[in-house]
Simulated scan of single mutants.
Amino acid sequence: MGNRYFSKSAVESMVPSGLGGSGISPSAIDDVIANGDNLIIGTQKRFDKGAVFVWTENNGSIVRSIRVNKVNSVSDLASNPHNIFGYLDNELDVLLTQSGWTKGSYGGTSDAVMYFKQTNAGRSEIVFNYGGGLHSGGQTFKKPYYYKLEGPEFGRRIRVIDKQTYPASEFQNAIQNETFKLVDGPTGTIWKQ
């Protein structure tokens, strides 16, 4: 399509959402590659813009994989927490507030935004963390580099990260010592159950 080759899995990802795909068009893929953030991963390059992730090879001429994270409801995040990855807090503000969540102050040292919901079962929280604290080595990012979901709404404590950009030492610490579920945002891979 155009001046790019697409793998079979990439084409299957592009079919309309009613048929099981993401419904993303080749022009949208071009936009992500031209205007998104990029990260070199081995022989591939990953581009992301918002909640759309595109993996390419051969200087962008081959599209290997496409993933679109879609948040249809907050309750969907219990089983698919990676679907939040790529979103800014203000992009989900309407969905969260219409679903009864309240924007609150985050008490940690990080530059983060927190939403919470109090029910009879207890308090649930979603934190969009932009860095500045322990896990980022003091760096602050323009979009969340990890998300924390906890409370009865999610069944357990979950951290959604990008393993490619999350500090390696903090990732190893989380794998070895933390009790939360650890999920890779761009791919949905579960690193720790």
Rank of each mutant, 00 (worst) to 15 (best):
G2L: 14
R4P: 01
F6G: 01
F6I: 01
S9C: 09
S13F: 05
M14T: 01
V15L: 04
S17Y: 09
G18R: 13
L19Q: 15
G20R: 13
G20V: 15
G20P: 13
G21Q: 07
S22R: 04
I29R: 06
D31A: 13
D31L: 13
V32H: 07
I33M: 11
I33L: 12
A34C: 04
A34I: 00
L39R: 15
I41T: 10
G42F: 02
F47Y: 15
F47R: 09
D48Q: 15
D48A: 09
G50I: 07
V52E: 04
F53G: 08
W55A: 09
T56F: 09
T56M: 09
N59S: 14
G60F: 08
I62T: 07
V63K: 03
V63F: 07
S65D: 12
S65G: 03
I66L: 05
I66K: 04
N69V: 02
K70V: 05
V71Q: 01
V71K: 01
N72I: 00
S73F: 03
V74Y: 04
D76N: 10
A78V: 02
S79C: 06
S79M: 13
N80I: 03
H82G: 08
I84Y: 01
I84M: 02
L88W: 01
D89C: 00
L92V: 00
V94P: 00
S99A: 12
T102A: 15
T102D: 15
K103N: 12
S105D: 14
S105E: 14
Y106T: 00
G107M: 11
T109D: 11
T109A: 14
Y115I: 00
F116T: 11
Q118D: 12
T119Q: 06
T119N: 06
N120Y: 07
G122Q: 03
G122C: 05
G122P: 03
R123T: 10
R123G: 00
I126F: 14
I126K: 10
V127R: 14
V127E: 07
N129F: 08
G131D: 05
G133K: 15
L134N: 10
T140C: 06
T140N: 06
F141A: 07
F141M: 11
F141T: 11
K143M: 09
P144T: 06
Y145P: 09
Y145W: 13
Y147G: 00
E150K: 15
G151W: 08
G151E: 03
P152A: 01
P152S: 03
E153I: 00
F154V: 01
R156V: 05
R157Q: 09
R157D: 08
D162P: 03
K163F: 04
K163I: 01
T165P: 12
T165S: 11
Y166R: 08
Y166T: 02
P167L: 14
P167R: 10
P167A: 06
A168P: 10
A168S: 10
F171Y: 14
Q172N: 14
A174N: 14
I175Y: 03
I175G: 01
Q176S: 13
N177E: 08
T179S: 13
T179H: 13
K181Y: 06
D184Y: 07
G185K: 02
G188Y: 12
I190L: 11
W191E: 05
K192L: 08
Q193T: 00
Q193P: 04
